[in-house]
Write a protein that binds this DNA or RNA. Sequence first.
DNA 1: CATACAGTACGAAACGCACCGTTTCGCCAA
DNA 2: TTGGCGAAACGGTGCGTTTCGTACTGTATG
Lengths: 229, 229
Amino acid sequence: MDTPRRQDGRQSALAPEYAAQPDHIAPDSRRRRRESHEAVLRATKDLLSEVGYQRLTFEGIARRAGVSKATIYRWWPNKAALVIEALSGEVPLPPIHETGDLEADLRTAVRLTIELVSAMPTCLILPALLADVIEDPTGTGAFAELIEPRRASVVKLLERARLEGRLPPDTDTSLMVDIYSGTVVYLAAVNRIPPGEAVVGQLVSLLLHGHLPVSKGPAPADREESPGA
Amino acid sequence: MDTPRRQDGRQSALAPEYAAQPDHIAPDSRRRRRESHEAVLRATKDLLSEVGYQRLTFEGIARRAGVSKATIYRWWPNKAALVIEALSGEVPLPPIHETGDLEADLRTAVRLTIELVSAMPTCLILPALLADVIEDPTGTGAFAELIEPRRASVVKLLERARLEGRLPPDTDTSLMVDIYSGTVVYLAAVNRIPPGEAVVGQLVSLLLHGHLPVSKGPAPADREESPGA
DNA sequence: CATACAGTACGAAACGCACCGTTTCGCCAA
DNA sequence: TTGGCGAAACGGTGCGTTTCGTACTGTATG
């Protein structure tokens, strides 16, 4: 507009970032896409925490980012894909570095899931996002790209434990992950607040020891009431 | 329209139905609401299975039901409330009649949850519905009315078992319900198909015996692949 | 080395369409 | 008389697409 952006050295500064993106159409298709790309992701993240997923709008993002609506449509097929890209940049989540202590590692995994679920505004975005992805399978791949790495790393961890005899040999490690993931997502959605440390302990206890005691200790404000209430 | 419904005896026939509804404005407020009410619920259910929750629209329902849009807005505050009412009529679900066999009863409970989840078209409606309810707490009450009775009856069942020593005395029975509910909802959403009998067995096995074996037997086409895939 | 020429992403703006949620207006039955 | 009803229209918002002129790019050319 009034402050025309400089154009020297842009190319080299942005190149690596483009390479890290889940190419929607092409890695850095043809030419540059300059800072519009960042502005869109930035606006998406901001608006996501301001108005939530449902009220998030391409038009709103375009306005906020100071970008043409057409530009957004050019690079992202739909809202879900855009949000997933924004989210995956937001939650760095290195692969779990195992301590060898199965219980501690699993606890970490559960915490990471909780962190992912609560990464954004209220924890309500995941059901909405999930619903969108389900409806339009176009985004399924991107969604998988977001959760699958985490999933896989935990399954690997559990599989190793199983093969080493630290878990019963016939354990369904894959379902283990689904159980704590599903529970975490469900509790977060229904209680409108992600589960706390107590639930982490309870889930791990159930999965590893088959024991599901009520949360002992000071009860950190989670699970006071059940979903329906 | 061309086949005007009879109206004799309607009042008495419908009265109990109204009483069972989560009065949005009033049970059978002031005057009658006649068959428009049924037509709307009918159209809602039909369209729900045809186009799913997201593409379900007040205008579409009005068209299909041969009813004025204003009439729908008069009686239901939003889409979620309407869908919840339509759903709760659809899944009769008597309270579980206990057999005394805890394992069998819990198995039944899990199956009922699966049935609820798959009651409608593809199993995708629950995340979308959940997201809507979360966003607009207006419908929270109605939603609770849909799931809470089931939840409560299972908790009661589990509590009885716990007090009778058939479960460890410190068991968190409430979380037990959340765990299988969450897992079922999550698997259904992510796999795009409700879990099958194998998962029922696995969940019950985990919750009651602390044992989570891979599904034995012919493996009825569920859980072949994991969510992310 | 400088200049001209595609090629193409970009912003702005507008398009028709669908649905939103509300309001107005007769009509008709209680 | 009252009030729910269907029909129809309201302004508003977002969709997804298209058109346009501009700005910048990499490459070809003098």
